[in-house]
């Protein structure tokens, strides 16, 4: 199979992927609000993510982590403020939403694989229907990424026949088949048995090494420490603290982050 770089814009090795400040940021959020009725799920959120940067978002349950990440590909619609993804403004216009979704891939806690399609069909559907790829091309592409997540032998199975860890790796491969520039993960390992967490984190680590821009909601602090360039800590809809992992774990500035870390690390 031919060499297929994960992502043409930033196919640089992770260690060298210094965030370039003059470049258009991968994600830029300015004073973003999201309300559910009277409840404010995002409260004046500002966030900037450089290309190639790996962000881990953490915080207590209900703090708005999922909402934040879901606003970036407009699965949730923000009410106020500005969101730019690779320079495209998410202004609720169809064509911009489409463009942003083409640049982003998403992995869900509950996998959300299509249960009535085989693993291979799950991976080829979007390339064929949204990108007009031929079936043969799409299959090659799918097998390339299924090999990458180390389950090419499961291609003809249905999702229900796979373990949770395998399903989540298929979900990652499925997203990669659209060649996104940014990957969004919402607690990708929270629904998994402990022995399967590792294989999924391993896949994500590999992706990070290849230079993918990543925003990841997770409570896997080991992963955060190793992979993240920056930790974003949220509480009650606000970004309370942002810091490099060493800094954040050793010396959290806010009281809220300190109690959160105590709870999570015991």
């Amino acid at each position: 199979m031919s060499e297929m770089p994960m992502n043409t814009a930033s196919g640089v090795a992770g260690a060298m992927a210094q965030p370039q400040l003059r470049e258009v940021p991968a994600v830029r959020m300015e004073a973003v609000y999201k309300h559910y009725g009277d409840f404010t799920a995002l409260n004046e959120v500002d966030l900037k993510v450089a290309k190639g940067e790996k962000i881990v978002v953490c915080g207590p349950s209900g703090s708005g982590k999922s909402t934040l990440i879901r606003c970036i590909n407009h699965i949730e619609k923000h009410d106020e403020g500005l969101i730019y993804v690779n320079g495209i403004e998410l202004d609720h216009q169809r064509k911009n939403i489409d463009a942003v979704r083409r640049d982003t891939g998403m992995v869900f806690q509950s996998f959300n694989l299509f249960p009535h399609m085989t693993v291979l069909e799950n991976c080829t559907l979007a390339p064929m229907t949204a990108n007009g790829m031929s079936e043969a091309e799409a299959k090659d592409l799918a097998m390339h990424f299924l090999t990458k997540v180390r389950i090419p032998d499961q291609a003809e199975k249905f999702p229900g026949q796979l373990s949770g860890g395998q399903q989540q790796r298929v979900a990652i491969a499925r997203a990669l088949c659209m060649r996104p520039k940014i990957m969004l993960f919402d607690e990708p390992t929270s629904a998994l048995d402990p022995e399967m967490v590792k294989e999924v984190l391993e896949t994500m680590r590999k992706l990070a090494e290849e230079g993918m821009t990543m925003l990841c909601v997770t409570h896997e602090m080991g992963f955060a420490r190793e992979v993240a360039d920056r930790i974003v800590f949220m509480n009650e809809g606000k970004v309370v603290e942002q810091a490099a992992p060493e800094e954040f774990f050793k010396n959290p500035k806010s009281e809220r982050a300190r109690t959160f870390l105590d709870q999570i690390i015991h």
């Binding site: 590909n73 407009h74 699965i75 489409d98 979704r101 083409r102 982003t104 891939g105 998403m106 869900f108 509950s110 959300n112 694989l113 299509f114 559907l125 979007a126 229907t129 949204a130 499925r174 997203a175 659209m178």
Partner: peptide
């Protein structure tokens, strides 16, 4: 489930 639709949107399906 709503997650099925969300996954489809995230994949840019029409």
């Amino acid at each position: 489930s709503a997650g099925q639709r969300e996954a489809a949107w995230a994949l840019s399906l029409s």
